[in-house]
Structures are given as structure tokens and as C-alpha cells.
Computed example of a mutant assay.
Amino acid sequence: MSWKASLSRHLPVVRFFCCPKSPASRGVFSFYKNNYEELKMLNPTMPLLLRCADNAMPAITTELSFTNSHLLKYMLQKNKFKNPDGSPNEERKAAAHKMLGLLGDAKLREEFETVRWNSPGFDPQRPFLDEEFPDWKKDPKISKDLSRYIEILDEIDSTWNTVTSGPDQEWTRAENSLLMCQRVDLWCAGEAEVEAALKHLLNLGKECNNLVPDLPEYITEYYPGADDL
């Protein structure tokens, strides 16, 4: 029961897809019917949606907040950085490792946010700055004040451009592939397989989502229970 009670802390929604007439969807439909009341009682604010349609592929889906770090790790694990002939591209792999280091460096991130304000009265992250003042990096005073900021920014941009420079829309295809991890197809699966798939999505939610609510210091409203129980 413990894992069921933690669903709403890591997943914003769970959708069950099935065909009411197909034996291949029987596991998904049975799991939803047999576990809905318990899941709803333990997670009253989380939508548990059943979507039925003729010939629908049985599956469960959720929503995961993937970051660039998740995508980079995924591409490295799945060897997605390849040359047109299918051989591994070491340059982009090295750039991906470097980018992960830059994204995970708390000290560098803190320094980047600090040196951002080294030029009084000027914010290099101001909205529409590149349209209004495209040559701000060439300004002698600004470029001197923000030399460290520009150095870090150029390094990040250069590394990022290398990572995303793969052929055949390599980066976009990897993004789409990672997004498919939000869905688990369950053709002819039994209830045990559906439960395992839900646990799998929960583990991904623990890694990618941060949905723990900020609870009030005292009770302000009282709800007797969900209407559909």
C-alpha cells in the first residue's frame, strides 16, 4: 500500500487506456476496476482517468518533467550520438559529458548568477535584450564588467551547440523517444504487469517530478471525502 499512497506525490495524473471489447485490454480494465477505490482513497486529488475506445492500445501514461540533464543521460546510455554511418560520435559524447558537468556544477551556477549583476543598471538576461541591444557584448564597459559572465555563457553555448549538432534531427528524435517513456503499452498484460508498469512510472516520477505540496500550518478546510467513492 505504501507505494500506492505516494503516487500523487510524484505523478500529476495517471491515464489508463483500453478497449472494452478486446481481451488484450482485460488486464488494464480489471486493474482499474479492482484498484480504483483504493488508489482514489489514498490519492484523492490525483486524477485517475480511464479512456476507452474501440481498438485502443491498452496502456497507462503519466506526465514527467524531463530536463536537459535527463535527456543527455538518456542519449549517452542509449548511444544516441552517432555519425551518419552509424558509428559513435566521440565529439558529441564528450560535449554531452561536459554539459552534464556544467549543468550539475552548483558553484558554477551560483557564480553565473552572481556575476550577472556586475554591470550596474544592466541585466544580460533582460527580456528582448537581443532585439533591443543586439551588440551589448561589444560595449566596452559592459564587456569588461561582465567578462566572466560572457566567458561562462560562451562556454555553455559552445558546448550546447556541439551537443545538438547531430545529423538527421538527432536531438529532436531523442527528445521524442524520451517522451515516450511517459507511456507503457500493456498489450495482453495481466493485472500484475499493469501494477509493475505503474510502479515503473512512479519511480520515474520520483526522479523527474517534484510535486510534494506545501502543507498549511493548520487545517483551513475540511472535505469529507471524494464524491465518487
Results as ranks from 00 to 15, higher is better:
Trp160Tyr: 14
Ala94Gln: 06
Asp154Ser: 08
Leu186Gly: 03
Leu103Asn: 04
Asn203Val: 07
Asn79Ile: 00
Gly101Ile: 07
His97Asn: 10
Pro213Ile: 09
Leu178Val: 13
Lys144Arg: 15
Asn68Cys: 13
Arg109Cys: 14
Met41Leu: 10
Pro12Val: 03
Pro23Thr: 08
Glu217Tyr: 05
Lys107His: 04
Cys208Gln: 14
Phe29Ile: 14
Leu129Gly: 10
Ser165Lys: 00
Leu153Phe: 07
Asp227Pro: 02
Asn79Thr: 00
Lys144Pro: 08
Leu64Ile: 06
Ala192Leu: 13
Thr159Trp: 05
Lys80Ser: 00
Thr164Phe: 01
Leu102Ser: 02
Asp54Phe: 14
Asp135Pro: 05
Lys107Ser: 07
Glu207Pro: 09
Pro213Lys: 08
His70Ser: 06
Ala106His: 07
Gly190Val: 12
Met99Ala: 11
Ala226Lys: 09
Gln125Phe: 15
Tyr74Phe: 11
Lys199Gln: 11
Asp168Val: 04
Lys80His: 02
Val163Tyr: 04
Ser2Tyr: 02
Ser65Gln: 11
Tyr32Leu: 06
Gly27Cys: 09
Glu151Leu: 10
Trp171Arg: 00
Asn210Tyr: 10
Thr62Leu: 05
Glu175Ile: 08
Val28Arg: 04
Pro84Ala: 02
Lys21Thr: 09
Arg92Cys: 00
Arg173Asn: 11
Met99Lys: 10
Ser22Ile: 14
Cys181His: 08
Cys188Asp: 11
Asn35Arg: 15
Ser177Gln: 11
Lys98Thr: 11
Ile60Val: 08
Asn68Gly: 14
Asp214Ser: 15
Thr45Val: 13
Thr162Ser: 14
Asp145Arg: 07
Phe31Leu: 03
Glu193Asn: 14
Ala189Cys: 13
Pro224Asn: 07
Pro44Asp: 13
Ile60Ser: 01
Val163Gln: 05
Thr45Glu: 15
Ser143Ile: 13
Lys40Arg: 15
Tyr223Ile: 04
Leu103Ile: 03
Phe66Ile: 02
Asn89Thr: 03
Lys206Phe: 05
Trp171His: 02
Leu202Pro: 01
Glu151Ile: 06
Val14Trp: 01
Leu71Asp: 06
Val184Thr: 07
Leu202Glu: 02
Leu39Ala: 03
Lys82Thr: 05
Leu7Gly: 07
Ala174Thr: 05
Asn118Gln: 13
Arg92Asn: 01
Glu38Gln: 13
Arg15Ile: 09
Pro58Cys: 10
Glu191Pro: 01
Glu63Gly: 00
Glu63Thr: 02
Ile152Gly: 05
Glu111Gln: 06
Arg51Ser: 12
Asn176Gly: 13
Gly190Ser: 12
Phe112Val: 07
Asn79Leu: 00
Ser119Arg: 11
Arg173Trp: 04
Leu100Lys: 09
Leu179His: 02
Asn79Ala: 01
Phe112His: 10
His70Ile: 05
Glu37Gly: 07
Glu37Leu: 10
Gln169Pro: 00
Met1Lys: 13
Asn43His: 04
Phe66Arg: 02
Pro58Asp: 09
Phe112Ala: 07
Ile219Thr: 08
His10Thr: 06
Arg126Ser: 03
Lys21Asn: 10
Thr159Lys: 04
Phe128Trp: 12
Tyr149Glu: 02
Gly104His: 07
Pro12Gly: 03
Thr45Phe: 13
Phe66Asn: 01
Leu201Trp: 01
Asp214Asn: 15
Pro124Gln: 04
Leu153Arg: 06
Ala95Ile: 01
Leu100Cys: 11
Phe16Thr: 01
Ser147Val: 12
Gln169Ile: 00
Cys181Met: 08
Thr162Arg: 15
Gly101Glu: 10
Ala24Tyr: 13
His70Gln: 07
Asp105His: 14
